[in-house]
């Protein structure tokens, strides 16, 4: 028994066993929040659920950010922050831009928005019912994305 082994196993257990299980719960919460029309809440649960499935990947990402210079280089923390900002600005924001272009195109149609937007209760309830019945499928979809995403981990 050593403190090192205890801490290592605690981290592995929390990151690879508990968090993916909680991820399923978070996705279920996201569906419920969506069905209730709390559009400002369900996205946090949904993104949280997705992140729970990729704890190891996120840690590898931070390790990649902090591994670009030598361990004894005084600029390492700055360089790590720089890599984080670089990744956020050049990887995440373009994807976010693509999402907003898609949303903008949908809103541009006007009529289409009135049919499917979750703020409108009739479609929201129908869509909420469908999502409630396919929570497992949503989780498998998230797992599929994460599994496919491992190709991006170097």
């Amino acid at each position: 028994m050593s403190f090192y082994n205890g801490l290592l196993n605690l981290t592995n257990w929390a990151g690879n066993v508990i968090m993916p299980t909680l991820g399923a719960l978070f996705i279920a919460f996201a569906v419920i929040q969506f069905a209730r029309g709390y559009h400002h809440l369900y996205s946090a649960w949904a993104y949280g659920g997705l992140m729970c499935l990729m704890v190891s990947g996120l840690l590898r990402m931070f390790e990649k950010f902090t591994g670009q210079l030598g361990w004894n280089n005084p600029d390492l923390y700055w360089n790590s922050l720089l890599n984080l900002v670089d990744w956020f600005a050049n990887v995440i924001l373009p994807v976010y831009a693509g999402m907003h272009v898609a949303v903008g195109a949908l809103k541009f149609g006007g009529l289409f928005e009135q049919q499917v937007h979750h703020q409108f209760s009739h479609t929201r309830h129908f869509l909420g019912a469908i999502l409630c019945l396919m929570v497992s499928g949503l989780l498998r979809l998230g797992e599929f994305f994460v599994t496919r995403g491992t190709a991006g981990v170097r």
Partner: peptide
């Protein structure tokens, strides 16, 4: 500390949710 970083990532996700 590098192992504790894994716990910090979990904490960040928890805080986000």
């Amino acid at each position: 500390c590098p192992i504790a970083a894994g716990l910090a990532v979990i904490g960040a996700i928890w805080n986000f949710v």
